[in-house]
Amino acid sequence: MALLVEPKQIVVPGEVLADDVDYLPGQYTYRSDKKIIAKRTGVVDIQGRAIKLIPLSGRYLPRIDDKIVVKIVDITMNGWLMDINSAYGAMLNSKDIPRFVRKGEDLTQYYDVGDYLRVRIFNVTSQNVVDVTMKEPGLQKLEGGRVIKINPHKVPRVIGKQGSMVTLIKEKTQCNITVGQNGVVWLKGPTLESEVQAVCAIKKIEAEAHLEGLTERMTIFLAEAQ
């Protein structure tokens, strides 16, 4: 007995992945005696001797350099508190926005409670205290449009290789789309129909992300919808 699973197989916590010291436990797996056991519901990914899991579900865990879509929930003396669709909140300091903010100025004239922003995480502590910044090109307030939430583990599939999937949806639906790593998607289109179409497409990718041949199916789906 050695390897007990195939690449891309779906496994659940407690499932034995390999029974051999030749294999090494990767992310979300652990070793017990000779066995390597899964710790999470996910898809098997074997790289050389290491077996790791790509999670299928679970909430977003903030990581440095992730670009995310956030909602402002509160304003403090020196910045904004925001909901990042995670177990933790995040802080945007007034000195981390592209404009100069004078001391004691009213912060609501820049961003108010309920606004959506595109930001980058620049620091996460061991206790998951999150700091975000907007001092970077492309990070701005998201005006109008609509926001949907998807499973954060499906975000890479919604974006596609070099953004191929999201570009496809953008072209077919004429929508402006921003996909945050935290699973919050902001989109704005010329018409209501186009927005609904884009939402349907994203939901379809989310539902079928772990199945093969996704790009072909999406091309057909979007062509049919036209």
């Binding site: 659940v12 916590p13 407690g14 056991i37 710790k39 999470r40 519901t41 999670p55 579900s57």
Partner: peptide, 11 residues
């Protein structure tokens, strides 16, 4: 719990 993607060592 497994469905929610919680890290679990066993069922």
């Amino acid at each position: 719990l497994a469905d929610a993607g919680i890290t679990m060592s066993d069922i």
